[in-house]
C-alpha cells in the first residue's frame, strides 16, 4: 500500500514540477494543482495509513488512541485543500487578467524570442 501511494505521490510531483517549468500559464496552473494533490497526500500520509478507523470517537467511551487514524494531518490537509482552492482561483483570474492585458498567455507576459 505504502509503495503504491508513494509511487503515486512521486508521479504527481514529477508531472507537477514538469508543468511548472512550462511557458504557458495554463500549464502552470494544472501543474500547481497536481503538485498540491501530491503535497496534500504527502502530509496526510505522515499520519501513516490506517484503514477503517476514521477519527470519529464515541462520546463518553474510554479511548485507545492507537486504534484511530491520526486526526492532526487530516485537519492540516483540510485547511490546505481550501487554501489550495483559493490560490488556484486567484491564479486563474490573474492568468486571465494578464492574458487580457498582454495579449499572450506566456508566463512572462511576452513571448520569448528564441
Amino acid at each position: 500500500m505504502e509503495l503504491i501511494l508513494s509511487l503515486g505521490i512521486g508521479v504527481l510531483v514529477g508531472s507537477g514540477v514538469w508543468l511548472l517549468f512550462r511557458p504557458r500559464t495554463y500549464q502552470v496552473i494544472i501543474g500547481l494543482a497536481l503538485l498540491s494533490y501530491a503535497v496534500n497526500l504527502f502530509i496526510f500520509s505522515m499520519g501513516r495509513l490506517t484503514i477503517n478507523a476514521p477519527p470519529i470517537v464515541q462520546a463518553g467511551v474510554e479511548i485507545d488512541s492507537t486504534t484511530f487514524a491520526d486526526p492532526v494531518p487530516q485537519a492540516l490537509v483540510l485547511t490546505a485543500i481550501v487554501i489550495g482552492f483559493a490560490t488556484t482561483a486567484l491564479f486563474l483570474v490573474v492568468l486571465l487578467a494578464s492574458r487580457g492585458l498582454t495579449g499572450t498567455d506566456h508566463v512572462d507576459g511576452r513571448e520569448t524570442e528564441r
Binding site: 501511494l5 508513494s6 505521490i9 512521486g10 504527481l12 508531472s15 514540477v17 501530491a38 500520509s45 501513516r48
Partner: peptide, 12 residues
Amino acid sequence: GGGMAMIAYIMM
C-alpha cells in the same frame, strides 16, 4: 518525483 516517492515511502 523520484525523491518525493522515496521520502514518502521511507516516512510511511
